[in-house]
Amino acid sequence: MVTPYERIGGAVVVDRLVEAFYHRMDTLPEAKQIRDMHGTNLGPIKHILKRYFSEWLGGPKLYSPEKGHPRLRQRHMGFAIGNAERDAWLLCMRGALEETVSDIQARQDVDAAMTKLADWMRNQAGNPHDARAGRP
């Protein structure tokens, strides 16, 4: 079975995806509130996200040997994540997916899984806490 990681193009595309995502976060006015949640140096967080996406998409396990179980909601509890933050994150990610993933069906599948993940990450009013983060 071909993994989503392989379908989108592997490590090269994961790298491009994360770079395109953070470029949008740096430049889109709609993303200012989520950009402000990050430090000035995005290098370390880019590294972590690339390793996480590699593993989450079915590629090499690069994240968990270094960081352990992702526990994404727990790791993000210090940040207020509501609908506006989710929407800004998805705006940046969808643009990055469009730019970097040429396989339309793979892009749609990853987008659907990322949308579930973004919904699940909300920790402000409006988050159904029993929702489960999807995987592609």
Score class of each variant (00 low, 15 high):
Tyr22Ile: 08
Leu62Trp: 04
Gly126Thr: 09
Arg16Thr: 00
Lys46Pro: 00
Arg24Gln: 14
Arg71Glu: 08
Ile104Thr: 13
Arg94Cys: 10
Met93Ala: 13
Val14Gly: 00
Thr100Lys: 15
Trp120Gln: 05
Asp26Lys: 04
Asn41Gly: 03
Asp130Arg: 05
Ala113Gly: 15
Glu85Met: 02
Gly43Trp: 00
Pro128Met: 07
Arg75Pro: 01
Val14Ala: 01
His69Trp: 03
Leu42Trp: 01
Asp130Phe: 12
Trp56Leu: 05
Arg35Lys: 13
Arg51Gln: 07
Asp15Gly: 08
Tyr52Asn: 00
Met121His: 02
Gln108Ala: 15
Cys92Tyr: 13
His47Asn: 11
Glu98Asp: 15
Thr3Gln: 09
Asp130Cys: 04
Gly82His: 12
Asp109Lys: 14
Lys61Tyr: 04
Gly68Asp: 00
Asp109His: 13
Val18Arg: 06
Tyr52Trp: 15
Gln105Met: 07
Met93Glu: 13
Arg16Asn: 07
Pro4Lys: 01
Pro4Leu: 14
Arg7Phe: 02
Leu62Pro: 04
Arg51Ala: 11
Ile34Phe: 12
Gln124Lys: 12
Gly68Arg: 05
Gly95Pro: 04
Gln124Asp: 05
Val12Ile: 04
Leu72Gly: 01
Met93Tyr: 12
Leu97Asn: 05
Val110Leu: 15
Gln74Ala: 15
Asn83Tyr: 09
Arg86Asp: 06
Pro44Tyr: 01
His23Ser: 10
Leu62Ile: 09
Leu57Met: 05
His23Gln: 13
Met121Trp: 00
Arg86Phe: 01
Met121Ser: 05
Gly43Leu: 10
Ile48Ser: 10
Glu30Trp: 06
Glu98His: 12
Ala113Pro: 00
Ile48Leu: 07
Arg75Lys: 15
Arg94Trp: 13
Asn127Ala: 09
Ala31Ile: 04
His47Glu: 04
Leu72Val: 08
Thr100Cys: 11
Glu98Trp: 05
Gly126Ala: 03
Asp119Pro: 10
Asp15Leu: 02
Gly10Trp: 08
Glu85Cys: 02
Arg35Gly: 08
Gln124Ile: 02
Arg71Thr: 01
Ala106Gln: 05
Glu99Asn: 03
Arg24Gly: 07
Val18His: 10
Gly9Cys: 03
Thr115His: 08
Asn123His: 01
Ala125Gly: 10
Arg122Met: 13
Ile34Gln: 11
Ala118Cys: 10
Met93Ile: 01
Gly39Thr: 12
Lys32Gly: 01
Tyr52Ile: 04
Glu30Arg: 14
Tyr22Asp: 09
Thr100Asp: 03
His23Arg: 13
Arg16Asp: 07
